[in-house]
């Protein structure tokens, strides 16, 4: 069964030069969709979608973990504090992934976290400070 899952990968200085995306495609038949990448003195990280057979994704995970890469599934990498959200809509137009949708019956702003690409644009648009993201 083909699924798409969102992961955060953390690299150390020992493994950050491994051609991981190439291997994901070539060996595991996975379509990686990289949303964020960073490199720093202690290694780096990737935030990406992996699309493929569930068993292939599991095998790919085992391969990456074998290299010492920390693999963390991201279900909710950006979180909305519902007690702070006032459903204004300031986030709606600044989100490139269109993850915020105004329900035109209730006028509530719905957050579709599966569409979120972790760009952090909403964090500085949200004045009640309802949007929170702790990734790295």
């Amino acid at each position: 069964m083909i699924t798409t899952k969102k992961y955060m990968l953390k690299f150390t200085t020992n493994n950050f030069q491994e051609p991981i995306s190439y291997e994901l495609v070539k060996r595991f038949n996975i379509v990686p969709n990289i949303m964020q990448a960073k490199v720093n003195e202690s290694g780096g990280g990737l935030i990406l979608d992996l699309r493929g057979e569930a068993t292939d994704i599991e095998d790919a995970k085992a391969y990456m973990e074998g290299l010492g890469v920390l693999v963390k599934e991201l279900e909710k990498h950006v979180d909305r504090d519902e007690s702070r959200c006032i459903h204004c809509g300031a986030c709606v137009s600044v989100c490139p992934a269109k993850a915020f949708v105004v329900n035109r019956r209730t006028w509530e702003v719905e957050f579709k976290s599966d569409l979120c690409i972790a760009c952090e644009s909403c964090l500085t648009a949200c004045s009640p400070r309802a949007m929170k993201m702790e990734l790295w």
């Binding site: 006032i86 300031a90 709606v92 137009s93 648009a125």
Partner: peptide
Amino acid sequence: SGTVELEGKSVRTSSLSSYKKAR
């Protein structure tokens, strides 16, 4: 409506006040 036409381009909009709370 979420998008408006501005200088021939479709532009996305954001409300800063809460219509839900106003209601």
